[in-house]
């Protein structure tokens, strides 16, 4: 019988290019080479997942799942978001205008509509652990166009806050936050810029916390008081895989 399974995927351009090159090398440019290679790759991946689990568990599961397994919905999640953001995401009618307006959505699988859907249906872990939550540039185009006047950015930022509270954060962001705590600037000055400043006739250090230790101390107080330092300490960064 002919294989009838079909999956359409979006992937990083460079990954796609590299894969195609390898496929061409291994199977040649024949029709069906891609399907062959992809099936092989999937089977390899499935096998390694089973092996990682252990022989007992591997036996318990059938080889190919057709339904995604997700954590059971959390009844409170949507309510939490509504309360924390002041944004009623339950108003969403899933029209998709946000996705069509999104600059990230244009080039990745990031789908703001789906995130709001999953959030309002209570799929807390799936949403908060997803890297998709971090692909929004907060450009606000979706907010301007939403027919239900939902501030999508506000909802996403609230969910980001919730993710970080749970310790889920991206590695580079932990670095930026650490800089902020140490220097009072998310982007602190570097040697090259000090030189440039002198060259331009400006003070070597700008009149910010860089120059005023007392002010820096104040900033650090605030960051401690508001729990920011604690949050960053507790964060267990995920690998920022390519999206």
């Amino acid at each position: 019988m002919l294989p009838m399974g079909r999956i359409d995927v979006m992937m990083a351009d460079d990954l796609e290019r590299a894969f195609r090159e390898k496929v061409a090398k291994k199977f040649g440019m024949r029709k069906g080479s891609m399907s062959l290679a992809i099936e092989e790759a999937i089977r390899e991946w499935m096998k390694s997942e089973e092996e990682a689990k252990g022989p007992e568990e591997a036996k318990a599961k059938p080889p190919l799942e057709h339904m995604e397994e997700v954590a059971p919905p959390s009844v409170d999640f949507a309510r939490e978001i509504v309360r924390a953001s002041g944004e009623n995401i339950n108003k969403c009618i899933q029209c998709g205008n946000c996705v069509a307006s999104c600059p990230s959505g244009r080039i990745t699988a990031y789908n703001s509509r789906r995130i709001i859907r999953k959030a309002s249906m209570g799929y807390k872990e799936e949403v908060l652990k997803s890297i998709d939550l971090w692909l929004c540039t907060t450009c606000y185009t979706c907010v301007e166009r939403c027919p239900r006047k939902i501030d999508v950015v506000n909802a996403i930022l609230t969910m980001r806050n919730m993710a970080v509270e749970n310790g889920w954060m991206l590695e580079p962001h932990k670095v930026v936050s650490t800089n902020l705590i140490k220097t009072g600037h998310a982007v602190p000055i570097d040697q090259a810029t000090r030189e440039r400043r002198k060259d331009l006739g400006l003070g070597e250090l700008p009149p910010t916390v860089h120059q005023y230790d007392g002010a820096l101390f104040d900033v650090q107080q605030i960051l401690k008081e508001t729990g920011f330092c604690g949050l960053i300490e507790r964060a267990q960064p995920q690998k920022a895989a390519s999206a």
């Binding site: 899933q94 029209c95 998709g96 205008n97 946000c98 996705v99 069509a100 307006s101 959505g105 789908n111 509509r113 789906r114 185009t141 166009r145 027919p147």
Partner: peptide, 25 residues
């Protein structure tokens, strides 16, 4: 899917609609 924006192709003068086919995602 609610169309988010329309722009005109400067060469063909056709109208380009940007949208999400939500049923396909």
């Amino acid at each position: 899917g609610k169309v988010s924006s329309i722009r005109e192709d400067p060469k063909t003068h056709e109208l380009i609609l940007r949208y999400e086919d939500t049923l396909m995602g």
